[in-house]
């Protein structure tokens, strides 16, 4: 009896350990390939297969990052770029939300504005760069204008459609329970349009980074784009690469933030709580 009890008792922690390894394995495996690439890259750079003028070794990028961070320069550039991006986003997104709510809610405003907006929408914001430079020169306003324009349409369109696709049956129900005006808006129309609005916000964030990068690369006196273009002049490929990595990180951060908003505001929707 005692003999059979022992191996079973021993098997339990063993099983748990195996489960732990399996769990860790599942978390780690996706990172193996990127890690291998980094290692091969590092080795190739050290052995001399890769010229540092083409691609600096990963460690050099980290070192450049540390050095720039220590001098405070890095934070300064990131702050300028992020400030620029979010100011443009706030202007464009705010206007898009406002106009989308108006055209979505009032037929008259839709008739007056929507056709015009749809026409402008067909112009890619980046195609406007020469014109924008003529209007605003190459200073801050031009960049904000381009970013705001790009963000505006994705938020506008999705807000408009969000409002229009709120289930009319729910609106009728709300009316029959005495909701009207602002209370109907707050209880039914806005929450009903919210998931679509957030889709617009996420697309807008994507746009925001692309346009920011292009605008900063063309001309800037500060910011990540300025840092990389400056480094290019001096053939500092490690700093150029650092700039690229920073853009990627900031983009990812904005996307994560948007996802968090979705998870928080749409927690009633099973599609957003599952992930």
């Amino acid at each position: 009896m005692a003999d059979t009890a022992f191996p079973i008792a021993g098997a339990v922690p063993g099983g748990r350990l195996a489960a732990l390894f399996r769990h860790l394995g599942r978390r780690l495996v996706p990172w193996l390939v990127p890690l291998a690439i980094l290692v091969v890259w590092e080795v190739a750079a050290r052995v001399g297969w890769l010229s540092s003028r083409v691609l600096p070794e990963p460690l050099a990028v980290v070192k450049a990052g540390v050095a720039l961070a220590a001098s405070g320069e890095l934070l300064q550039h990131v702050r300028v770029s992020a400030g620029r991006a979010f100011t443009g986003f706030a202007i464009g997104g705010g206007l898009g939300l406002l106009l989308g709510l108006l055209t979505g809610s009032f037929r008259k405003v839709e008739i007056a504005l929507d056709t015009t907006l749809q026409m402008i929408r067909n112009i890619p914001p980046l195609a406007l760069i020469p014109l924008v430079i003529l209007w605003f020169g190459i200073d801050e306003t031009a960049k904000l204008f381009l970013i705001a324009l790009g963000v505006f349409f994705s938020v506008y369109i999705n807000t408009f459609h969000g409002i229009r696709s709120v289930d009319p049956a729910l609106i009728e129900m709300g009316r029959s329970y005495g909701l009207k005006g602002w209370s109907l808006y707050r209880e039914i129309i806005l929450p009903g349009a919210l998931s679509s609005i957030l889709v617009g916000v996420r697309y807008g964030l994507g746009f925001m980074w692309v346009i920011l990068i292009v605008a900063e690369t063309i001309s800037a006196q500060a910011g990540i784009g300025y840092m990389t273009m400056n480094a290019r002049e001096f053939l500092q490929t490690d700093v150029v690469l650092l700039g690229i990595v920073l853009y990627a990180l900031l983009g990812k951060l904005a996307d994560v933030a948007a996802r968090q908003l979705e998870r928080r505001w749409l927690k009633w929707n099973a599609a957003y709580t599952a992930a």
Binding site: A169, L170, E172, E187, P191, G192, L194, W268, N269
Partner: peptide, 9 residues
Amino acid sequence: FQDARLLPW
């Protein structure tokens, strides 16, 4: 109504 028309949010 035939569908309950509850607000999902």
